[in-house]
């Protein structure tokens, strides 16, 4: 019993640490990649090649003064950043980052929780993420924050539909809501869901960009129109928490993309690979999708808000419905 608890504790510490570390690395990578794509050097003063920049940033965030605007709802204003950053950190619990490790004769499944409703759990937490944004914007007592929050929540709710429907078609193919089951069905290279569900993959990827408020759908923040966005009034560590939440959400979405469509820890043509290589494969795929987030940000111009809504409701939603219907029909008539 104690042993079980210890294994579980180690997994929690490792996964959560990896998530926070990824968020820190992403804050540096964002600036470095953007610099390299624009013939610049990027931050290179703190540590060798700027490696320690996230630490310096973190330190600065902690040292800064926390401001609460007059007329703000103090309780909600203080709690909102936590609500914004928690869902992503919780969602990572069900993501399988490997098949199972065999250490000292024990078989250890490589995910914190092996939930039978893993997909549902992640979607529920994704829905919660909207609250952080809208509460933060509303409690600030500032018109810019409120407008930013309204816009961001409208966007997140719209794209959540596409996200769910894209995931549902994967669930239909794999026949399970358990993420561990989903990666098990994708062990062989040709069984990767991206080959049977290319449209769902595209829809899911686009929806994750909107869901995490990333470019070209970054309507949660906008300097020219909103003086920032839902976090205009936030400073210091509370602002950093929104930031952290965004990066954690990106990491979770990238990991989810890997899990649902790219076989998770599966390595092409080598199904019996050691578990550690499986974890590395999973990390590599996730890193690629994280890179994609930054890559797209420095490539595409952002949409207008009406274009965003039209894309969401008139293009992506019908497409995902068609995809789901076709998948369902195929599974019902020809499925095994």
């Amino acid at each position: 019993m104690i042993e079980e608890l210890l294994i579980w504790l180690v997994k929690v510490v490792v996964v959560w640490g990896a998530l926070i570390a990824t968020a820190a690395i992403m804050s540096l990578a964002e600036r470095k990649v953007s610099a390299w794509m624009q013939y610049r050097h990027g931050p290179n003063r703190v540590g060798p090649g700027g490696i320690l920049q996230p630490l310096a940033d973190g330190l600065k965030f902690i040292m800064k003064e926390e401001l609460v605007p007059a007329g703000a709802n103090r309780l909600i204003f203080r709690v909102a950043p936590a609500i914004a950053s928690m869902p992503a950190m919780l969602a990572v619990a069900v993501i399988p980052f490997g098949y199972s490790a065999v250490i000292a004769g024990r078989e250890i499944p490589l995910s914190i929780a092996d939930l039978d409703i893993g997909v549902l759990y992640i979607l529920a937490l994704g829905g919660l993420a909207v609250y952080g944004v809208i509460l933060g914007g509303w409690a600030s007592n500032s018109k810019y924050s409120l407008l930013g929050a309204l816009r961001a929540s409208a966007q997140m709710i719209s794209y959540e539909l596409t996200l769910m429907l894209a995931i549902l078609s994967v669930v239909l193919v794999c026949g399970s809501l358990n993420l561990r089951q989903i990666i098990e069905t994708q062990r062989a290279f040709l069984d990767w869901n991206v080959f049977s569900q290319p449209l769902a993959f595209v829809l899911f990827t686009i929806a994750t960009f909107a869901e995490t408020n990333r470019h070209p759908f970054d309507f949660a923040e906008c300097e020219p129109e909103l003086v920032g966005g839902f976090h205009t009034e936030y400073s210091a560590m509370r602002f950093a928490l929104f930031f952290l939440g965004e990066y954690c959400a990106m990491t979770v979405m990238a990991a989810l993309n890997t899990t649902l469509f790219w076989g998770g820890p599966s390595i092409p043509f080598w199904p019996q690979a050691p578990w550690l290589l499986g974890v590395a494969s999973f990390a590599l795929k996730t890193a690629f999708f994280l890179f994609l987030f930054i890559w797209v940000r420095w490539t595409l111009p952002r949409l207008r808000f009406d274009q965003l809504m039209r894309l969401g409701w008139q293009v992506l939603l019908p497409l995902s419905l068609v995809n789901l219907t076709l998948t369902g029909a195929v599974m019902a008539f020809w499925g095994d």
Binding site: W36, Y39, R40, H41, W295, W298, T299
Partner: peptide, 12 residues
């Protein structure tokens, strides 16, 4: 295009 620029030398 942006990926190709990624490998070019910074002019700063």
């Amino acid at each position: 295009i942006t990926f190709r620029k990624f490998f070019e030398k910074p002019i700063t």
